[in-house]
Simulated scan of single mutants.
Amino acid sequence: MQRKSYAAQTMGTRELRRAAQRSAEKRATAAPVNRQLSDRGHQHNEAFCLMWYACECGHRERIWNSRDGVTAFGVQCPSCKEPKLRHVNWNLDQYAPDHVPAPGQRVWIDLTRDRALEIARRTVNQVAKGNVPVGTDLNRIADAVYNGGMSPDLVVYGYVEAV
């Protein structure tokens, strides 16, 4: 049977295995990344900092980064529900590794794989209007969101979701 010219090209398992092997070999021979540590000995300057976020609507809040990782520059504002809450006044970031958040304070934490899957499922539901891809497609999207555990997640300290 002849393949239609517009049909999607798919890779066989042998091709996929060889591509994965080449990728692994490339990573193994790549030069290690020499990251310059911050003055405080962390990989990121915003590690364990209290940071000011502000929105055009007037809402301001201080969010704590509980991790040695990057944070989002902007997120959804809890007051106006617009994605306009931005990290401002970077010079006022305060290093606070021993900070204990108050109940209700928002905190940056490491994204978990389960939460990444939840975000992927919710995003696909919004975009595809309920046609959630099955199996590996949703897992592939979740892997992109998860980013090997490097992605941040914003949570409210002291809040437990009712089941």
Rank of each mutant, 00 (worst) to 15 (best):
D98F: 10
N125E: 14
R17V: 10
L138T: 15
R106F: 01
M51R: 01
Y6D: 07
N34Y: 05
C77W: 01
A96T: 15
L154D: 09
A102W: 01
I109D: 11
G12S: 11
N89D: 14
D39H: 04
V156A: 10
N45Q: 09
R27K: 07
F48C: 09
G149F: 09
V160L: 02
E161T: 10
D68H: 01
N65D: 04
S66H: 11
K129G: 05
D110M: 00
R115P: 09
A47R: 06
Q76A: 14
S79V: 14
A47F: 02
A120R: 08
K84E: 00
G58R: 05
V155Y: 01
A20D: 03
N91R: 03
V100M: 00
E161W: 02
A54W: 04
E61P: 07
A128K: 14
V107R: 06
R140M: 06
E118R: 10
Y146G: 00
A24Y: 02
Y95K: 02
S23Q: 08
R122H: 15
N147G: 13
W64S: 01
T29G: 05
G149K: 11
L154S: 06
P133D: 06
A116F: 03
G104V: 13
A128L: 15
P103G: 02
S151R: 13
G69C: 01
L117N: 12
A31C: 12
V145C: 07
G158C: 08
E61Y: 06
V145L: 04
M1Y: 03
I109R: 15
R113V: 06
H44R: 11
V163N: 15
S79Q: 14
D114I: 01
V88Y: 06
L117R: 15
D114V: 05
D137M: 03
D114L: 04
A144I: 08
Q21C: 05
R14Q: 11
S79I: 07
F48D: 03
V124A: 10
T71E: 01
A144R: 06
A7H: 00
A162Q: 14
G58W: 02
T123A: 08
K129S: 10
W108E: 09
Q36L: 12
Q9C: 02
R113W: 14
N91P: 05
T136H: 06
Y53E: 08
R86M: 13
R40V: 12
